[in-house]
Structures are given as C-alpha cells and as structure tokens.
Amino acid sequence: MATHPRIEEHPDLLAMRAHAMEVSAKPALQTAEGLTLLTGLYMAISPWVVGFNGNPLAVSNLVTGIALAVLALGFGSVYERTFGMGWVAAAIGAWTIISPWVVQHASATTGTIVSNTVTGAVAIVLGLMTTAMARAKRRP
C-alpha cells in the first residue's frame, strides 16, 4: 500500500507559502496593511466625525469600515490566506464612493460626499496595491 504525502507537504503549496511570507515581509505591504486598517477605522467612525450620523449612510459606512478593518487585520496576520482578497478592499472603496448617492439619494451633503470619495479612493488604491504586490513575480 502506497503512502501519499500530506497536502501541507506539496511543493507547490510550500512555494506559495514562501512567496506569501516574502511579500508580507516587505515594508511597502506592511504600510499598505496599516493604512488599510486606518482607512477602515476612519470609514467606520466618519459619520460621527463628519456629522452625518443618524441616517442610513452612517450604517453603511460603519459596516463597510468594520469590514475593511477586519480585512486589513487578515492581511497583517494571515497574509498567505488573504493575499488574493485585495480586490475586496477595492470593491469596498468603490461602494464607499457611490454610496452617498445610492443610500441617501439627493440628500447627500458636501461633507458626506467629500469624506466618502476620499476614503473610498484611498481604499481602492490600497486594495489595488495589495493585489499588485500579491501578484508580483518572485525574484530568482
């Protein structure tokens, strides 16, 4: 009876883990992780900072901000399992940009629009940066 190696010992999986560890050790990715966490936390508290709490957009920002912060924590702690999810941060950023018009319709204020647009743009850039670093080829 032949014995098969466990999946954890497969050479491709070991190479992927080594690549993830190499990428996650880069200061640029660590900076992106930290900034993504701060962006998510700001997004979550922005209704109270900018002053639009008490409307549906506040709930949207709170939920998406917490989701972005949790995603950033995943990037920082288990990067080898979450590196392919950088696009989710970009999607959250895109939602943040359009949410004042989708959720609040015509009652969005200038402060709401500016806050969500800037925060969403930062989330998109950081998400794309994380995705690009994950897809970067290994150097020989």
Rank of each mutant, 00 (worst) to 15 (best):
T39E: 07
G76K: 06
P27T: 11
P47V: 02
V50E: 08
Q30T: 10
L68E: 08
A72L: 09
V78F: 14
S46W: 02
F52V: 01
V59P: 00
E33L: 09
E33W: 14
L41Q: 02
L62S: 08
G65S: 05
L71W: 06
V70E: 10
L62D: 05
G34W: 14
Y42Q: 04
L57P: 01
L73S: 03
E33H: 15
L57D: 01
L38D: 03
N53R: 05
T64G: 00
A58V: 01
F75V: 02
I45H: 00
N55E: 11
S60A: 13
L41W: 05
G34K: 11
I45A: 13
V78G: 01
L35R: 02
Y42N: 06
Q30I: 12
L29Q: 13
L62R: 09
G54C: 02
G54Y: 04
P56G: 02
L38Q: 06
A58I: 01
P47Q: 07
S46A: 15
A44H: 00
S46P: 00
L35Y: 05
V49E: 03
P27V: 10
G76M: 10
Y42M: 09
V78I: 14
I45M: 12
I66K: 03
G34V: 11
A44T: 06
V59M: 10
Q30W: 11
Q30M: 15
T64H: 09
G40N: 08
A69Q: 06
A28G: 11
L73C: 11
L71I: 04
G65V: 01
L41F: 09
P27F: 12
I66C: 05
A72T: 07
V70A: 14
A28R: 15
T64F: 13
W48R: 04
V70I: 14
V50K: 01
L41H: 03
Q30R: 15
L38P: 01
S60C: 05
G76L: 07
V63I: 15
V59R: 07
A28E: 15
G65Q: 04
L57A: 01
S60M: 08
L41G: 04
M43H: 10
A44G: 00
G65K: 03
I45R: 03
V59C: 00
G34M: 13
V63W: 13
A67F: 10
I45T: 10
L57T: 00
F75A: 05
F52Y: 15
G40Q: 08
Y42F: 15
T39I: 06
M43E: 12
T39V: 06
V49M: 10
V63M: 13
L62Q: 08
T39Q: 07
G54H: 03
A69Y: 08
L73V: 13
N55R: 10
N61T: 05
S77R: 14
V49K: 03
E33P: 00
E33R: 12
S60R: 00
P56D: 12
L37E: 09
P56K: 05
E33V: 15
L29H: 13
T31N: 13
Q30D: 10
V59T: 13
G65R: 03
A69N: 05
G51H: 06
F75C: 03
T31V: 14
Q30E: 14
G74R: 08
L35T: 02
F52N: 01
L71S: 02
G74N: 07
G40S: 07
A69P: 02
W48M: 07
A69I: 04
